[in-house]
Design a protein around this nucleic acid. Structure first.
Length: 418
RNA sequence: GGAGGGAUAGCGAAGAGGCUAAACGCGACGGACUGUAAAUCCGUUCCCUUUGGGUUCGAAGGUUCGAAACCUUCUCCCUCCA
């Protein structure tokens, strides 16, 4: 097995480490490491996946992952990388989010069979009294040290509450706890976590622990065009199939630009260096074949949603992008179109196309519907319709039940007749 | 408390009595091209079947044949002085 740190460096996932030589030495033996996840939503998103995959890499290299869900710190809010104060969530919300994250993380790291450990820092932070905290943690941090942190500095102008200011102490207390209870020797995180990680190491040192502990960060990833990674059509890309269907997930990755796709392969897949370099060569020589994008989409969909969902996503993709949806059977449509908006329509003899578009929310207004039709944006079962007075009839129903309407290049809506 | 400046379509920003459903830029959406890419080009972007109609320019009143534009009051924002 190649050196994990070298592998991370190759993949562009290495930002900085507190003591590289020391860590390399320590990693010759299996070690426990941790990474935190903030319960700020009811699902992890594509950006979080990077962190998960990095944990999996370390796990594959023989180390033991501890995933910490911030049920306690999530009550406070991490100021790192943020320009304004966080809106606090209720106790119930944080608890619910935490539970979701645990379920999602389990699928990748496998807590149940002991391959990884799950903890919620609410377990120790929730019952911690203010007095204890100030005596046992706060006493070890000079105010100057805290004030000089970048996360705090950046907020001095815009304002920062005492609550968020204190956040770093809570996270360092996490590390101390894991160090003492789980023999955890490494904390990893995005580069914005450097301040919090080093604060943890500081606390461990000041508590008189000699056994070395480490911190390592990876860069915050960006797209080549400078826009934020992990967004599509304004919305975030989630791991939860109810929020982002496997088909949408597959589409998100296959739409990666040539400039980004090789990076994504390095960051998110477990393909070897040789395999990645071969695909990079493909991008250079045969960009139109989009081998790299296809491989990426396949890998990511299999990883997150499994082989069966991948198969479905590929089936839907080929039907939709060949434009030949009319060949699909009723069964296939029922399976495949779960990913798309649907509209139940009364099965009348004939319905004005414009009315259908508006009723099914494909167009926001009749005026817009007319415009779409006349501009050639509307396809019924794969066939363009440009007549404003066109109507849907029984002939337009596949299997007597379905009509597939496409607006623009790839927005599909399934009309179900009943 | 005093003195000014501002509020215009998703956002930014023109307009200072009729030629304004409101320039321009961005965004968004369509189309062409293409590789489900990028770039580019073209079109649309308040609502309604119309070279036509309706409802808009912070809110409410008023002046006028006619107001986003003028007056009054109110609400909110910003700057300066205390």
């Amino acid at each position: 097995m190649a050196d994990i740190i070298d592998d991370l460096k190759y993949r562009g996932l290495f930002n900085q480490v507190t003591d590289e030589e020391g860590l390399r030495e320590a990693m010759k033996k299996p070690m426990a490491f941790y990474c935190g996840f903030d319960p700020t939503a009811d699902s992890l998103h594509a950006g979080n996946l990077l962190v998960i995959v990095i944990m999996m890499r370390l796990q594959k290299a023989g180390h033991h992952p501890i995933a910490v869900v911030g049920g306690g710190t999530g009550m406070i809010g991490d100021p790192s990388g943020r320009s304004s104060e966080r809106q606090l969530n209720t106790r119930e919300t944080v608890a619910r989010f935490s539970e979701r994250l645990k379920e999602q993380l389990d699928r990748f790291l496998h807590f149940s069979d002991g391959e990884a450990t799950y903890v919620n820092n609410n377990d120790w932070l929730g019952s911690l009294s203010a007095i204890e905290f100030l005596r046992d943690v706060g006493k070890h941090f000079p105010l100057n040290y805290m004030l000089s942190k970048e996360s705090v500095q950046k907020r001095m102008e815009a304002g920062i509450s005492f609550t968020e200011f204190s956040y770093m102490l809570l996270q360092s207390f996490d590390y101390l706890n894991l160090y003492e209870r789980e023999n955890c020797r490494l904390e990893v995180g995005g580069s914005d976590q450097w301040g919090n990680i080093t604060a943890g190491l500081e606390l461990i040192r000041r508590k008189g622990h000699d056994d070395p502990a480490f911190g390592m960060t990876f860069p915050l990833i960006t797209k080549s065009d400078g826009t934020k990674f992990g967004k599509s059509m304004g919305g975030a890309i989630w791991l939860d199939p109810k929020k982002t269907t496997p088909y949408e997930w597959y589409q998100f990755w296959i739409n990666a630009s040539d400039d980004d796709v090789v990076n994504y392969l390095k960051w998110f897949t477990f393909l070897t260096k040789d395999a990645i370099e071969a695909l990079a060569e493909e991008v250079r020589t045969h960009p139109e074949a989009r081998q790299a994008q296809k491989t990426l989409a396949r890998e990511m969909t299999r990883l997150v949603h499994g082989a069966r969902a991948l198969e479905q996503a590929e089936d839907i993709t080929s039907a939709l992008f060949s434009g030949d949806v009319s060949k699909l059977t009723g069964e296939e449509i029922e399976q495949g179109f779960k990913a798309f908006p649907q509209y139940a329509c009364p099965a009348e003899e004939s319905i004005q196309l414009i009315d259908v578009l508006v009723n099914a929310s494909i167009a926001p207004s009749r005026r817009q519907a007319r415009e779409d039709i006349s501009q050639g944006a509307i396809y019924i079962n794969g066939v363009r319709r440009t007549d404003l007075n066109d109507a849907l009839t029984a002939n337009d129903r596949i299997d007597g039940r379905f009509t597939i309407i496409r607006r623009g290049k790839k927005k599909y809506t399934l009309i179900k007749f009943k």
